[in-house]
Computed example of a mutant assay.
Amino acid sequence: MPLFSAYQITLDDNELGNLVSIYDALPRFAWSGKTVRAVAEMTMVKEGTINGENFRIILKAVHLQKRLKVNGKVTKQVEAVGVFPGAREEFVEEALRKFSTQGNSKFNEAECSVQFSLYELQKELQSQKHTYTYAELREALNILSESSLTIQTRTADGEVIDIKSTYLPFLAIRSKNKKSSAYIDPADSDDPESAVQCKAVLHPLISRSISNGDYRLYQYATSMGLTNGIARVLFRMLSFKWRNASPSHPFTFSLIEFLSNTARGLSDRMPEDFRQMNIALDQLVKEKAIERYESTKIPKPRGKGALDYTYKLWPTNEFVTTIVKGHRAQSRREVQMIANRTR
């Protein structure tokens, strides 16, 4: 399918990937409070606005058996807990989506699927400085395939989006020696020669965006190198929205508006929000995602302190180059879509 071919990344652009509209703008992962024990804590609700439209996200924790820790040491005792998809699952999903831009993926209007081995997934994450055992990767994949995610919003043109799905609606894991696909013994999975094979279907909004040609190039390697959750969300937002990035066109945003739409949300102390925002921006500068930034305080009408802060960001040459490539890719997609409609 031509549009899916356009979605794929060439080997020359191996450090690039694709972001999709709506899905990548929403707070889909938990940054804190990932493990819960009370039934009342098994559901997490996030609300805000995206592109002027209200959104509502409902996350459901996955029931797992975890070994108890006493004084920092793991014991033989186990407890039933709820676990939300967190940073590990975010990196795993991002790696799977990178696989979807390469040759080991299949696409139709209903779904985008990827085939990979645990060894390949582990090596991909290691190349981006994220080290996980096979057991940890298997757990992350299971969390992504079992955690329910409800997304309710509208598109810019008014289309209603109301989808309830897991992050990976389908997941199959099997060993090369054809043992049960329902369970892989940890002793086997820690052996690269076992070549545990997997197939996963990505979230339906990803397939929808590919089908509509509604995606943008971004610096995958840079994103994977960001350890700060706020920095990762901001970088994805910049990659999708900053269409005219250049030294003469800085990106501006409000601290309150941005943080209120993240998984972290706003705290009850503006100085703490300001500090955390600057930590995230400092990492973006360090990782050469942006060149520099400036903040402007909006004072309270009465008394001391800030009501809000506005920020200006300037891009690096690498960021501008990726944006230009994204414009070219989008132009090619638009030509293909017109050609498809006229056939």
Rank of each mutant, 00 (worst) to 15 (best):
M1S: 15
I9K: 00
E15N: 12
E15R: 11
N18I: 05
L19C: 07
V20Q: 07
V36F: 06
T49G: 06
G52C: 06
E53V: 08
A61N: 04
H63W: 12
K66H: 14
R67A: 07
N71C: 09
G72P: 06
V78C: 13
A80N: 14
G82L: 09
G82S: 12
Q102D: 11
G103Y: 06
G103N: 14
S105Y: 05
E109I: 11
A110F: 08
E111G: 10
E111D: 11
S117L: 01
L125T: 09
L125E: 05
Y132P: 08
A135E: 12
E136W: 01
E136I: 02
T150G: 00
D162R: 01
Y167S: 05
A172S: 14
I173N: 00
R174A: 10
S175Y: 03
S175G: 13
K176E: 12
N177A: 10
D188L: 14
S189E: 12
C198G: 00
P204N: 02
S207C: 07
S207I: 02
R208F: 13
S211L: 08
R216Y: 11
L217G: 02
L217D: 09
Y218P: 03
Q219T: 00
Y220R: 10
M237A: 07
S239L: 04
A245F: 06
R264M: 10
S267C: 03
D268Q: 13
P271D: 03
M277W: 02
M277I: 06
N278K: 14
N278L: 04
L281T: 09
Q283A: 06
T296D: 12
K297I: 15
P299L: 10
K304I: 13
G305D: 09
A306R: 03
T316V: 06
V320T: 07
T321S: 15
V324P: 02
K325V: 08
H327I: 10
Q330C: 07
R332Q: 15
I338T: 10
A339F: 12
R341E: 11
